[in-house]
Design a protein around this nucleic acid. Structure first.
Lengths: 122, 122
DNA sequence: CAGCATCCTGCGTGATACTG
DNA sequence: CAGTATCACGCAGGATGCTG
């Protein structure tokens, strides 16, 4: 019984598949402090973006849906007008936060530091 | 002075850029046990692949080059015929291993376990 | 406000053939 | 053995306009 290996056999490959997309990791990270609405996530993602670049709703929407389907986040629709939708981390999603923290930590030490030592003035 | 933010401001984005590509993470992981040759990496990567799929040398080559250029791995060419080239982790690359370990660990618990509990027989 | 529908484009990935 | 060159393709990602 060796046929169901697709995406499961290698945790790293599975991980990569799971968080494929520019924003997924950052969405989960942004959600670690509590529930956020669609628009909040959107604007939150804009910070830390090169500049001028907007996020296509299609893209964000799809990533949110993907994260929901794989059980990392939970979508709560208040069913009112104007629409109000909140996204929050599931238990599984919360368990993922430390991993991102490790990534951020490493990134700070070996990526940001290398390239931005001189921008400390900002 | 706020112009050099591209890729540096957000560690997560920088990380994603750095390990973009299907094999980079797994290459680094494979190299954690010591230096490996091109062909060894190639065949090592084949395990854990769906099946039948080969890796285009062009792809592997590019990922190895990218990893070399960003300082995660080091390329050692023995300059002999037939060619012998070894790749090994740099200090920076080694510092990255724990991060991948965290990813693998999380993956085992929340991805592999979910989908492959019944394949334990393999 | 929180999306969906449509079109378009670049790049990552794969397959194949060739070389020092 | 360890790659490079070339061709082809699918899909992520952006832009724009519309809707309940």
């Amino acid at each position: 019984m060796v046929r169901a290996r697709a995406g499961g056999a290698c945790p790293v490959a599975a991980f990569q598949k799971l968080i494929s997309g520019k924003y997924k990791l950052r969405i989960v990270w942004d959600l670690k402090d509590g529930p956020r609405r669609y628009g909040e996530i959107r604007t939150g993602l804009l910070r830390g973006l090169d500049g001028g670049g907007e996020i296509a709703p299609r893209v964000l929407s799809r990533e949110l849906k993907a994260l929901t389907e794989c059980g990392l986040i939970d979508r709560k629709d208040y069913g009112v007008v104007p629409p109000k939708v909140e996204y929050r981390l599931t238990r599984k999603g919360k368990s993922f936060v430390p991993v991102i923290a490790a990534i951020r930590d490493w990134g700070h030490r070996h990526l940001v530091a290398d390239a931005e030592t001189m921008i400390a003035a900002e």
